[in-house]
Amino acid sequence: MGSRRQFLAGLLATGLAPQASWADLGCPTYLSAAKQSGGAYVLAGLAAQGDLLFSCPLPDRGHAASAHPIRPEVVGFARRPGRFADVIDCRSGTRLARLTPPTGHHFYGHGCFSPDGSRLYTTENEYGTSRGVIGVWDSTDSYRRITSFASGGIGPHEVLLRQDAPGLVVANGGIQTHPDKGRDKLNLDTMRPNLSYLGFDGSVDDQIQLPDDLHQSSIRHLAMRADGTVGFAMQWQGAPGADVPIVGVHRPGSAPRLLAEDDPRLRNLNGYGGSLQFSADGTTIAVTSPRGGVVQIFNVASGGLLQEHHLNDVCGLATNKSGFLASSGTGSLVALTRTTMTPLAQANLRWDNHLIRLI
Rank of each mutant, 00 (worst) to 15 (best):
M1D: 12
Q6R: 09
L8F: 10
A9D: 14
A13K: 15
A17G: 11
W22P: 03
S32H: 02
S37W: 00
L58Y: 10
L58V: 09
A64L: 07
S66L: 08
H68V: 02
R71V: 14
V75T: 07
R79S: 04
S92D: 11
P102N: 15
H106T: 11
H110G: 02
G117N: 03
G135D: 09
V136G: 06
W137N: 03
S151E: 05
H157Q: 13
L160Y: 14
L161H: 06
Q163L: 14
V170R: 03
N187W: 03
N187D: 13
L188I: 13
D189R: 12
L195T: 03
D201A: 10
D212C: 02
D213A: 08
H215P: 03
A226C: 05
G238I: 15
A239T: 14
D243W: 04
I246N: 01
R257H: 13
L259T: 06
G271C: 13
G271W: 02
V287G: 02
S289Y: 13
P290E: 05
L305V: 01
L306M: 13
L311M: 14
V314D: 06
G316L: 06
F324K: 10
L325R: 12
S327E: 06
S327T: 15
L333T: 01
R338D: 15
L349H: 02
